[in-house]
Design a protein around this nucleic acid. Sequence first.
DNA 1: GTTCGTCGTCGAACCGGTTCGACGGGCTGA
DNA 2: TCAGCCCGTCGAACCGGTTCGACGACGAAC
Lengths: 340, 340
Amino acid sequence: MATIGDVARVAGVSRSTASYALSGKRAISVDVRRRVEDAVRELGYTPNAGARALATSQTRVIGLLAQFLEDEFAPAMLQYMLGVSNTARELGYDILLATESDGRNALRRMTDSRMVDGIVLLNVAEHDDRLPILRDAPQPGALVGLPADCTGVDVFDLDFEEAGRLMVDHLHRLGHRELALVSQPEHVVERGGAYVWRLQNAALEAARARGITLHAVFAPSSQPDVGRELHALLDAHPGATGLLINNEAAAAALPTVLHERGLAAPADLSVVGRYSDEFARTFSLPYSSIESAPDRLGRMAVRELVRRIEGQAGPAEPHVVRFVSPELVDRGSTDAPRQN
Amino acid sequence: MATIGDVARVAGVSRSTASYALSGKRAISVDVRRRVEDAVRELGYTPNAGARALATSQTRVIGLLAQFLEDEFAPAMLQYMLGVSNTARELGYDILLATESDGRNALRRMTDSRMVDGIVLLNVAEHDDRLPILRDAPQPGALVGLPADCTGVDVFDLDFEEAGRLMVDHLHRLGHRELALVSQPEHVVERGGAYVWRLQNAALEAARARGITLHAVFAPSSQPDVGRELHALLDAHPGATGLLINNEAAAAALPTVLHERGLAAPADLSVVGRYSDEFARTFSLPYSSIESAPDRLGRMAVRELVRRIEGQAGPAEPHVVRFVSPELVDRGSTDAPRQN
DNA sequence: GTTCGTCGTCGAACCGGTTCGACGGGCTGA
DNA sequence: TCAGCCCGTCGAACCGGTTCGACGACGAAC
């Protein structure tokens, strides 16, 4: 494999001159520059990443910590990963991926050994045990998901409160007076999935403010259990005319459940979900939904992270907490409640 | 950040001694070893990955090239990635992930700059344009998917021929005499997705050998188009009593389609798919299927790759082409055809 | 005709590890 | 008692880049 020394020899210059010719950090005569470039082509020279990292303390790699937990719906996760990965590439960074369940270990490994210039954390819990480690690390970090304490990192998330209000408002405006909200399973909440609460509390608050009923339940995030839970929910609240779904697995199971009960949306039941458009397409979900914008969030996180890595963000520029406003994608699954 | 020089100073030894104490490559007195270990703990020392890579020409990173093409069903892809990633970690390797559509570029970047010790290629096409690059690279490569030319790499794939035969045999034995096979969309084939052909040809051959009819069609891999295509297929072949699905998107769409037509499996139609158990769970698919074993294939590929990286495979040990035997997971969606 | 500044290049040092050869001290065996 | 060997340690070189300071040549300004 060719080194910069080989390039220098072929071009008939010193190593440092070859380096400057390639980086452009000092003036170089056109003649020499051309000879160096020719040598690079001739030898098929590519700089050794390790050596460069050692010399510059920059790796041009971003660490991506994704956890695929038992009770998480993997296809939803994938889209965040792709948003991060594709944006990183556009900005000239590669992705070092950790999927292991012990995120703390992975994080420490990446940051301590300086394999990465920055870190993106997905699926951040309210009291995420990776955060203290990330704060102590010399590399900057960006999160997708809102923890209780945002100091020292840039944070991006959907505005789940607004999403909850939006769902309730939308159905209230159509005339619904009794709704049911299906959230992620309870242990996701216990583990610190605060977004579940954020949406649910805001929805309950909005319902109270408008004087309507909202039944809030947790449902499993695995098939086929979640289907059973949906049946139970509909049995328990025959008066509910609107369904809010903040649980990807439940959304995926709903078409079958409705079919089994001989119900149609919106004729018999209005339905609003919270998932991405891509997800809706993959699962053929015909329900209006709040776009959760995983690609956009991943993109925002990487953009800000790179800004910080490259120091365009001033040395002590304050950290950012940014919420994406929920948008309702109308797929025609809501209507005025049936009169009976 | 502490370096090995710091460790050495605190322990009162030379840098080389500290290094040997940690690597164990030379005999070290217990006293010195203890002092070095104490210093490591005290300083929180972790070796710098770039420096180590430079010195040893080993990065302990594996490059993973996954392509998420327009017409590919992403959730199916994810499972291969997880199989690779988790196995790599178990063996002490990290994953450098490339999801960009230009796999050639990503591959060249990783190998030329020596960011990785080896490469795993997912979703390998018959004449994959990444292969020539991989063969020229100094790092070993392992593939998931069977190309026309396997020289210079280790190859792992499901035995799609056997899978095709197995599907046909299974339904033939139950008494079916007219079947339909739904494959991936035609341009997946054109792009080089040879596994589509492999299964289809073997299925056609088996059908001919047994004197039964097999209608083979391509279907889109996106929702909701694939549903429409399934309806068209069932309209066109009312006499078909068995359905073979070699198309994840079609499998995901099938429950809805059957519902819409008022059909049940296996009462009205026997169904056999080809997808992973994990996939079946995610999409609540109640159909018997040939396990495509993505996690197992990913695992096998990484195992062999690491063996080769670490030189336990003899210097010129011949490369491996290994097929996973298909296994039919019975979910009760097949039965004798309805007499009418 | 000096002097000064700029341009282009080079040598050397450095980043943080690993590894080879050398070397002193203690032990063993003849 | 001395040669020879092994054990434990050290210094130096190396991996392949980048970057700093120095320096010669040349043109412009006085």
